[in-house]
Design a binder for these strands. Structure first.
Lengths: 231, 231
DNA sequence: CTTTGAGGTTACAGAAAGGTTACAATTTTA
DNA sequence: TAAAATTGTAACCTTTCTGTAACCTCAAAG
């Protein structure tokens, strides 16, 4: 994915949601913000809407925020930023142990919030602006979602783009279905391989001279795919 | 995907360096810690020693910490955690903008430090994943299901992989048919030896220079197989 | 010497995994 | 809000993997 698109706020205080939304829209005017005050509903939204980043308040009405995080981490690696009034060491440690990516203490500073979200988005490759990758005769500009091969330029869809980025970043190494699934959905999708093979076909049609006799996007049975230019 | 091995602390206060080192060694007993009080020397160390993670104090003697970060980011994406006495918003924002990965405010809590470093290491895949096994001229990556011998890399099937893993783990020792069967099927398969010999043949074709005159995968009649590089 | 048994070797059928295409549902764009 | 693009599933085909069986080779036992 080339940019931060969708963000989920799990927080029951409307004012806080409002404040966060406004802060984020300063930096990402096109961002879509989902929000809910319920942990259960939050988990549903994560599964169905696949946000890029989650902001999670610890004090929810229905379930404890830690519980939400724990359950989310059973199926997903989407970055989670915890929002808390108490800045207590024990909480912070517990949060990190459960797989949180960062902590923000209320009351938070708008600019700090943006800075921390930006840092996470950068880590997870959600932010573009990087140099195009040159690999053999391929010019792959992942922030532009384009590949050029032998003068022929193609535009990729979001999903194709993230798969190809992951594969090119791991040139000559097999990337497992799990890793690819994580890249596409941020979560461990059921029957991921079934969908992935379709996307790989689509990619092959865009970048392979003969899609049915692939030279660059190769499969390793039972494992995953690799990108190579060694032929 | 190894483990957190090498960490660089750029900080001029010896006591702080000491405190951090001790905290880290609790969690990673084998960690190697480099440290320097000079920003210039820090940059040198980063270039030459390639640490996995960098902890950077903002108040250095020679150059400003931000300046160090800026220069590091011109050639490297190694995670940088900033250490600062002032928890001022402006600093935090500037730090993240320059590409910092996290902030820790002095005086810091040991456990929080560990938790934050762990979180970063997890993101960067420094944690988890197994190392490839090096054995003679063989590089066997069990999670990748590949063996490299004299530069030639082969992919193994699931079954071949589990057999070879078992044999290499018991290098120079005969592994009985029973043990191998248990590795493949989890149970004591009927007529296991009949199938195993076929798999061994397939393995030999993949890793032996002359599969019919095996040097590495040897049989002990009536017992089982062994893997050896002593020849 | 023959016999016997264990391992080596090859071929093959069924199972599992990947390739290919079409399509309905959803999301994005205009 | 209608049109276009994208997504994910399902169905079907092709390739790869698995385990068995048949046959071969060699060495130790009778």
């Amino acid at each position: 994915m080339a940019d931060l698109n969708k963000l989920l706020i799990i927080e029951d205080n409307e004012e806080v949601v409002e404040a966060i939304s406004i802060a984020l829209q300063i930096r990402w005017p096109d961002i879509r913000i989902l929000s809910t005050g319920s942990g259960e509903q939050g988990i549903d939204l994560i599964m169905n809407k696949k946000p890029d980043i989650i902001i999670l308040d610890l004090g929810l009405i229905d379930i404890n925020g830690f519980e939400v995080l724990k359950r989310v981490r059973m199926f997903s690696n989407i970055p989670v930023v915890i929002l808390t009034v108490r800045g207590e060491e024990a909480d912070i440690i517990k949060g990190f142990e459960l797989g949180a990516d960062d902590f923000i203490t209320k009351p938070f500073k708008q600019l700090e919030l943006i800075a921390r979200i930006t840092a996470i988005a950068r880590r997870v490759n959600l932010i573009g602006g990087e140099d195009p990758i040159v690999c053999g005769n391929f010019y792959f500009d992942h922030s532009m979602r384009t590949v050029k091969y032998n003068g022929k330029q193609t535009t990729l869809t979001h999903t194709e783009n993230s798969i190809l980025l992951k594969l090119i970043q791991n040139k000559n190494i097999v990337v497992t279905y799990d890793k690819i699934a994580e890249e596409i959905w941020g979560i461990n999708y059921p029957d991921a391989a079934d969908s992935i093979k379709v996307y790989v076909r689509r990619l092959r049609e865009k970048i392979e001279p003969d899609p049915s006799r692939p030279r660059f996007l190769l499969n390793k049975s039972g494992l995953g795919y690799l990108f190579t230019t060694r032929n």
